[in-house]
Write a protein that binds this DNA or RNA. Structure first.
Lengths: 204, 204
DNA sequence: ACATTTCTGAACCCATGGGTTCAGTCTAAG
DNA sequence: CTTAGACTGAACCCATGGGTTCAGAAATGT
């Protein structure tokens, strides 16, 4: 993924990273049970024993690859939410919320994010703690960050006073829910209508 | 499940049903890859070759068991939504919506429904058409039925005029979204706040 | 009672794939 | 140049489990 098809890097941590990237790619493509370690090794341009040199077994491979990807998604989502900070405090709250909604939707809709959710939920029966860890690193962190921003907006009189955690939940639900019903829906339209409903309910 | 531990039934269709019930139980408990056909046979109180007498292979077992369960969930959900029909047209719209919300939430929250969603999404990479079929039989059917009811409510002046499909999506998202963030949340509270937000946005 | 069908359980075959071993190679450091 | 450590690739071991076979038991229908 980061190596993009060239020769494998030489350093220890780079090689480990290449293996984890390859693992994520293969797991995302085939799922946990269908993916075999040989394929992962090939994808990472590395011999099978080398894989076991860096990661103890297939399960570790899965856990580390998925958690790392979850961290990336979480970081991107947080960054999107942070777009609500004081920076552009002159623009209308609706516009600021809509911009954040679109960024969040784009983040949650891209291939890697879909794969992470897919993989986490796919093996929830086998690795329940991994599913919990992914939820913590993505959904819960984002809700928390968003709640902070919404609280500030409420304090500034731009939103009705209410439980920020709950408001954040509703905002995110309105945003991500429609994806379950129409996975191919236009993100901008979904974002706009989510903000519309949200402001009708939570506007000052 | 339906046999509850007694002797296996004798008829052809009953036996097939017992096998599918056992399959669903075992798949729900262990996931597709971890479940082995021997366990399913034991759960259905039947010999392994008998399983292959009724269903062609493990994949068919999975598809039929999951689809049948999805139909059950879908039917229950539709029944909940139909609670919005003219029947109790004298009660306040808020109360009627709240009752439906609670019924839907209970339906979607029970063990079987969680298992169906889990199983469908778990093997989405391997059997994408099964995932689509389950979504069609549950989420999409429910959205459609709910959109019908909301359209009537709008026509009767109880809701603001708007795209019923979209309104239904928002209603269901507000209802089911919070489950992702707090799986142990009190259903009645979630239902109440979902209806609250919905009516603020869509109330007449 | 007899014939037909279905079920049983146990053994069996075999493909898959996780994990290891090993002899030989390449790289890096001194 | 030498030595130590990591990497390679191919072969190997072996547990798991899908799917089948078969001889005999049970049930069913006439």
């Amino acid at each position: 993924m980061s190596t993009g098809g060239g020769a494998a890097p030489r350093g220890r941590t780079e090689r480990r990273q290449a293996i984890l990237d390859g693992a994520f790619t293969v797991f995302a493509r085939q799922g946990y049970a269908q993916a075999c370690v040989k394929d992962i090794a090939q994808e990472a341009r590395v011999a099978k024993p080398t894989v076991y040199n860096h990661l103890h077994d297939k399960e570790s491979l899965y856990r580390e690859a998925v958690e790392a990807a979850a961290d990336r998604i979480g970081a991107r989502s947080i960054a999107a939410v942070e777009g609500l900070r004081e920076a552009a405090t002159d623009r209308a709250p609706r516009d600021r919320l809509t911009a954040v909604a679109r960024d969040l939707l784009r983040t949650w809709n891209d291939e890697e994010a879909r794969a992470v959710r897919q993989l986490a939920c796919a093996q929830a029966a086998q690795f329940p703690d991994l599913a919990a860890s992914v939820r913590e690193r993505t959904a819960l962190r984002v809700r928390s960050a968003l709640a902070d921003r919404l609280a500030r907006l409420a304090l500034a009189g731009h939103l009705r006073a209410s439980d920020p955690e709950q408001a954040a939940e509703h905002f995110l639900s309105l945003l991500t829910g429609p994806l379950d019903y129409r996975p191919t829906a236009d993100p901008d339209t979904v974002a706009a209508s989510a903000v519309d409903v949200f402001l009708r309910a939570y506007g000052a």
